[in-house]
């Protein structure tokens, strides 16, 4: 578990990271309730998925740094497999993001927000955490520079949030947009949130999480291909 512990240390010794990882989830708890019946959950919980995407691209950035600085090359010559390097890093990112989720859920509960099914919400966010980490991993594999990857992904996040129904209710979108929205993981996150508030059939919730996990698997396969340079 050396790489796992080292990844955690690398992330947490960066003061900006610590600020980013703690301040934003706490701020999300205190965001107000929606005023016109949408979104169904308090605003911080509606936008938390977007925050998870931002956090995941920031955390997975250290893997591009490893490529930029030649760490991956040195690891290739070391007695450790790429699989080990990958899963220990991903585990470190997941642990941090799951902790954030737990903070947000418990914080919201203590603060007195109506979260409908806090357990279900936690499950949904955790599954989305895996999806967002694998999307970021796949995205980073396309770039050689951490900065370019981060900046362009910021734009992609805004578009995914907008077209996936996080910022606007899907019903407001034209029909063509509603059809396209299905391809965005954020659409399934907003569907999951809607199920938590209004849904009845447990199968629907399992289906939504299943789709998100499939996305996670798909992007993990793309992102896990070893790139030395």
């Amino acid at each position: 578990m050396t790489i796992f512990i080292f990844a955690l240390k690398r992330i947490l010794r960066d003061k900006t990271n610590v600020l980013f990882l703690t301040l934003f989830p706490i701020a999300a708890i205190f965001l107000p309730l929606a005023q016109e019946g949408w979104p169904l959950l308090p605003l911080g919980y509606q936008y938390f998925g977007v925050l998870l995407l931002f956090v995941s691209i920031r955390l997975t950035g250290i893997m591009i740094e490893d490529r930029q600085k030649g760490v991956v090359k040195r690891l290739a010559a070391a007695p450790i497999s790429h699989f080990n390097y990958l899963w220990q890093n991903l585990l470190a990112f997941s642990v941090i993001m799951v902790i954030q989720t737990v903070i947000v859920i418990i914080g919201g509960h203590v603060y007195g927000h109506e979260l409908y099914g806090p357990w279900n919400l936690a499950i949904l966010y955790i599954v989305f955490t895996f999806t967002s980490i694998s999307i970021s991993l796949a995205w980073n594999s396309l770039y050689r520079s951490k900065e370019s990857s981060f900046l362009i992904f910021m734009a992609v996040i805004v578009l995914m949030a907008l077209l996936g129904g996080i910022l606007f209710p899907m019903e407001m979108m034209p029909e063509a947009f509603q059809r396209i929205a299905v391809i965005f993981p954020t659409y399934w996150l907003s569907e999951g949130i809607e199920w938590i508030v209004l849904g009845e059939d447990r199968g629907d919730f399992l289906f939504i999480n299943g789709v998100l996990l499939l996305y996670a698997l798909f992007f993990l396969i793309i992102g896990s291909i070893r790139r030395i340079s």
Binding site: I152, L162, L163, F168, M173, F177
Partner: peptide
């Protein structure tokens, strides 16, 4: 091109989507 993307292409896409919605 990254600046162009962030300060021109992204706003154009956002404006288009918002205007349609």
């Amino acid at each position: 091109f990254i600046t162009m993307l962030l300060l021109l292409v992204v706003p154009i896409i956002l404006i288009t989507v918002f205007s349609i919605i």
